[in-house]
Amino acid sequence: MRIGDAVSTYPSDEAIFRTQTQKVWMGIFIATLLTFPFVSSPYTLFLACLVGIAVISATGLNILVGLTGQISLGHGGFMGVGAYTAVWLADNMGMGLALSMPLAGLLTAAVGVVVGLPSLRVKGLYLAIATMAASVILHFIFVHWEPVTGGNAGINLQNANIFGINLNSDLRMYFVVVPLAIIAVLGERNLLRTRIGRAFIAVRDRDISAEVLGVDLLRYKLMSFGLSSFYAGCAGALWAYFFKVVTPESFPLDTSIFYLAAIIVGGMGTVLGPILGAIFMTLVPEILKILTAVVVPILPNAQVLLSPVRVVVFGALIVGFLLYEPHGMAEMWRRTRRYSHLWPFKT
């Protein structure tokens, strides 16, 4: 049980981790992340890298959709831009990830700002369609701009390095992806402590009064599109470094929907939500796969028979979540935590 968390100074009141308990838990969490790859199986390590990349991308989408209230179905396309750019820069300019990834992010941000232009005139469903159209156009470019993208066959990443170290194992990728995911989440958290995060939320909650209070809508909507796409571009670049190949089918429209589902299931507009959502969306299909594998000895062709069932179960789980807890997993987590803090008193 923890009683109160009274603080006496403004800096300590505005700190991210305010109590000793929180700091201890954070330490345990970091230690776990550090030791995990040395005790995990290659398969779980592979999944951990995928989760890390998904966390970065989902956090980016959360900035746009969850915090700023601008819906987007272009996120998968943006990841594609980042992936292609990073591979191109690595193989043609000989760049390492430390350079190719941020540059890919910046180019994607520029594309995101352009795609975000309609948000100045349209909202909601119309914006969803406009961004989806952008995503279709990007897909068209991936397929047809062959000299750069390699067309339908895609391109392979030959030069996957960071600071001269070859990124040829999942273990090495893990130590690139996880710190970047932590930085990405902390960045979003920091944003929320400043005028920029407040302006995003103001645009989401009431754009008209935000404007009358001094928030330039044009500036902040486009900034949000740019920042969100920067995250997507970096996540796409990491994805390319992880799989070492990018094709037009690496980031189909499904990807955008996957990430929207992730932030909805996790809890939109919260910092924790995209993390939980990314974990859920990445791991649940895998867990379902393992469960079907268990049945194989009894039912030899279970994999084939049950694969459509798996998709349905996954969908049903998402819908179940939305019905049971519309504010997402982050809200469930918050409730549990509150309960544990006040234990043994009843809430």
Partner: peptide, 21 residues
């Protein structure tokens, strides 16, 4: 935060400074 938002136009923090606080 609602009150702080009112001061928005007098603050100068840019995007990069905000991300890294």
């Amino acid at each position: 935060d609602n009150i702080k938002l009112g001061a928005h136009s007098h603050l100068k923090t840019g995007l990069l400074a905000a991300l890294f606080y």
